[in-house]
Design a protein around this nucleic acid. Structure first.
Lengths: 342, 342
DNA sequence: CCAGTCTTTGCTCACGTGAGCAAGAGGATT
DNA sequence: AATCCTCTTGCTCACGTGAGCAAAGACTGG
């Protein structure tokens, strides 16, 4: 590339395969092959090309590669729940694993339920190979819209089970998990549980509440009290727990709060300890789900359930690379983490 | 597009502008113009095109658009510090604002210092228009590498001041902020401060420690004690504070811990209260920086300093859209948030 | 009704790569 | 040395759009 053409030589970015080919004394296609792992190229050519590329500062243009090959190696990650610290853990794990396997991630903030459609449209314009939902506000309607448009190959629901047969769900086995949790609660002698549930969605569902209720009914013949929180937000959870418990006589209080996840549990603990002035776990015990980093803090010492995120992420990569279209759903077994809160 | 061509008609995604043009009775270029906001097109054509596009499920292919126009409307967001909850807040704000303005975000996890180069290379292959660093491990060497390669137009350091003249830094005015904080500390009568600092980088610097030290020297003629933590991680901070303070007699303890950010402050509070069994703020007060959501929790009630993230994000968009190349650095004024911890 | 002006439209060319094919190079076998 | 096979290389064509130009159309004022 001549420097006479000042405008075009502004970035090293528009060094193209042709320039490298000229410098290395091979054809353009040999240059491109040098950067593709599946291509057949002689060791000598590879070395020449790489040396020239290094010298000129060439890197292949993935936009063009994607356009020509119809594979973008790009996935959209849709999130709507930035109040939940577990999302940070999930993002760290997914970005790490996906990048290692050559996938890039388009981060999309699904502002609210009505925005999900726009978010999907947005992602589809980049021709992502797959959409991964780690949000919560995706109900049937949104999923159907997404699947109907079909502008991406795969719709993956991560860390949440989906009833929709056209989605791929990679999640922890809620039934197994909550049974283990309920067994623990039972064995420790708690008898007046209250279940703190998050927002209820339809297609992308957590089976935690149902499983717990069923367990309790089966073992004790009665229904545990259930309280719903409209978002996985500790502050919101704190407000609702306060409202539910503050006026009650001690005997009418639950002896344990089983929470659908850590975000809710942490909000609950804050309220129980600092506003109701009760002890944890002596007056009210609390359990969570996810094992976020803060759960280990001395403030919470939360008994919770850890999802095998790394394993789930590895499987996600498999799913992305797979050409299968059916039976890709998978459930994983996590681990009960016992601390002081219950 | 004929359905006889089963392979190609698999997605609605490869409905192309040609198909829409045929359906709408206009040329392909008119179709594309209909989707470009700066293009000149008659109301009648626009309507026809949009109707046909809707019917066929057409959305423009941004890969091709980017290839042809040399503008990707894509920025890479490089993060290496997922332990700090403030990152979640920043991501929420940035994704929200950037998407509204038509920018998509490539999320890149910069695993460690040595990986930053790979991360930048990765981003450059997508021909991003700008790289935004909200990580911390970017030292001179990495910045120089990035700038030398010059595969993107702008290198933006967000929420951190940079000494490097080739980067654009959008940050809170640390000097102003810490002076205000120090004034508050002073006014409340604290006289034995300890400064808890994060990792020391060179180019992308926080001026917090220096400013505080200078203030103290100026007002009291002595140097405050400084303790360094190699990452903004509450758990790490807790360990180091424990190590520093556990063996000291009460009189040798600081009366306030001024922390470089909330992540460190929260770790410190956990240790002071639960392991050293001291009261906050009576025995040791604590201040933070950032005002993460957890800072308002009853566990922390952290006195801290809030960065005007929304304003900073809006300015970031301006910078992205600007064709200026110089003097784009900008400092913002935040707000001291007084709570119970100091 | 016509010249002048502004708006809209269609076209050529370019962006940088991959798929798939055919030709070439190189080595082993007969 | 001729034949066959395999590995490597170069080529044609295609991916779906934008920039910029020229032609066509619409509008204005005299």
């Amino acid at each position: 590339m001549e420097m006479t053409d000042g405008k075009k030589a502004h970035f090293a970015g528009n060094v193209t395969a042709d320039d490298v080919a000229l410098a290395a004394g091979v054809s353009r296609w040999t240059v491109n092959r040098a950067f593709r792992k599946d291509a057949s190229i002689s060791a000598k050519s590879l070395e020449k090309v790489m040396a020239a590329a290094e010298r000129l500062g060439y890197v292949p243009d993935l936009r063009a590669a994607s356009l020509a090959s119809d594979r973008s190696n790009l996935v959209a990650l849709l999130i709507d729940d930035f109040a939940n610290p577990h999302k940070l853990v999930m993002m760290e794990r997914l970005t790490r694993i996906l990048r290692r396997e050559g996938w890039d991630i388009l981060l999309v903030n699904t502002l609210d339920r009505d925005d999900a459609g726009h978010a999907l449209l947005n992602a589809s314009q980049r021709r992502v190979d797959a959409v991964i939902l780690i949000g919560i506000q995706f109900d049937d309607e949104v999923l159907e819209t997404a699947l109907h448009a079909r502008r991406f190959r795969k719709l993956i629901i991560f860390a949440r089970t989906s009833q929709n047969p056209n989605t791929i769900s990679i999640a922890v086995d809620d039934v197994l998990a909550i049974k283990e949790m309920a067994n623990y609660v039972n064995a420790r002698g708690y008898r007046r549980p209250m279940f703190l549930a998050g927002p209820q969605t339809y297609s992308a569902h957590l089976l935690r509440k149902e499983t717990f209720v069923e367990y309790w009914r089966e073992h004790f013949g009665n229904e545990p009290e259930i309280v719903g929180v409209p978002a996985y937000d500790p502050v919101l959870a704190a407000g609702i727990v306060m409202e539910k418990l503050s006026e009650r006589p001690a005997l009418a209080l639950p002896d344990i709060l089983v929470c659908e996840n850590d975000a809710l549990a942490m909000g609950a603990i804050d309220v129980i300890r600092h506003r109701l002035n009760l002890r944890i776990p002596e007056d009210i015990a609390v359990t969570g789900f996810d094992d976020v980093p803060q759960a280990a803090s001395p403030n919470y010492q939360l008994t919770t359930y850890r999802q095998p995120l790394t394993e789930m992420g590895e499987y996600l990569v498999e799913v992305l690379q797979s050409s299968e279209t059916e039976n890709l759903d998978r459930l994983f077994e996590g681990k009960l983490i016992v601390r002081d809160s219950a």
